[in-house]
């Protein structure tokens, strides 16, 4: 559900009790006990898989550091958002079906993706597409997969109880950054401050507030191609705000928005680069990610 931003402060506990019953344990406080080892299916997302493999590796590292088992369902490819958002519904169908087939298994506890946008698509757009194309069974399965799918910060904060990245994940990143909350995570998933709070607790980090942070960067998938001029105008303002913070990097939770912002910064020769939240959380004193 999308909702007014005033609600963001309310943190919904989204862990599904049904699932834990399958595993024969009932959790009273919905937060995972440290002794419980989860089997987590990584939904890498197509853009991270093909363009930013380090971000997927970082996600694996963080979860393994907490002692959980990560699997990678090989049948996965993409959430189909690009097709749906471009209006190609029949073409989106095989992509969506493939995702549902890949993740509609008993083989894992929860799925996680380092992307608010792709998770929002799985949770909201997949059922919508199935409904629109008149496929009630597919819709039911889509809803079930959506319920078990988490965006990374959601999983870390709501399920795994991470409140301090330095202490609990060993995260260390001695840089000044700023943070752009991507639209679909912020509005469709109501992530609130989860990502920002995690970043603020990374060892050695300085987080400067981004002016007009809640404004879209102008990516919007094929919007950036079809309405390139408007998209660029939005991007210019986003870049201006990022540069005004003096940060050496802009962090975010969506590789696609980061590619857009980063592509613009690269073209204008501006100093800041973009970096995914997972990469910062995976960075440690021993193995520090460099800019």
């Amino acid at each position: 559900m999308w909702s007014d931003h005033l609600e963001y402060k309310v943190r919904a506990i989204t862990t599904s009790l049904d699932y834990y019953e399958v595993r024969g344990i009932v959790w009273s406080d919905h937060t995972l006990k440290e002794s419980f080892i989860m089997r987590i299916a990584l939904f890498a997302t197509c853009i991270v898989d093909a363009m930013y493999p380090e971000t997927a590796k970082s996600t694996v590292k963080i979860l393994e550091r907490l002692g959980h088992e990560v699997i990678f369902p090989k049948a996965q490819a993409c959430c189909g958002q690009m097709h749906m958002n471009s209006g190609y519904m029949p073409e989106a169908l095989p992509v969506v079906e493939n995702h549902i087939n890949a993740f509609d298994t008993e083989d894992y506890d929860v799925a996680v993706a380092p992307s608010g946008s792709c998770v929002a698509s799985v949770k909201h757009q997949h059922p919508f597409l199935a409904e629109r194309l008149g496929k009630p069974e597919l819709k039911e399965r889509a809803v079930a997969v959506g319920k078990r799918t988490y965006e990374l910060s959601q999983l870390l904060v709501d399920v795994l109880g991470i409140t301090n990245a330095a202490e609990q994940l060993g995260s260390y990143f001695p840089q000044t950054i700023t943070y752009h909350p991507s639209c679909h995570g912020m509005r469709s998933l109501k992530l609130g401050d989860r990502q920002l709070d995690l970043l603020k607790t990374v060892g050695g980090i300085t987080v400067n507030e981004l002016p007009e942070a809640d404004q879209c960067c102008g990516f919007g998938g094929t919007f950036s191609i079809k309405n390139s001029d408007v998209s660029t105008a939005m991007l210019e303002d986003k870049m201006k705000n990022i540069c005004s913070t003096g940060a050496s990097a802009c962090a975010g939770g969506d590789a696609s928005c980061l590619m857009h912002i980063g592509g613009g910064l690269s073209r204008t020769g501006a100093k800041p680069r973009t970096l995914h939240l997972a990469d910062i959380l995976a960075s440690t004193m021993e193995e520090t990610v460099s800019l």
Partner: peptide, 23 residues
């Protein structure tokens, strides 16, 4: 149509290996 993207944005060099292959 992809020129709409590169009108104002670069695309980073792709990696040598996808995450899938690394896995």
């Amino acid at each position: 149509i992809a020129a709409g993207w590169t009108a104002s944005r670069d695309i980073p060099a792709p990696p040598n290996k996808s995450f899938r292959d690394w896995w």
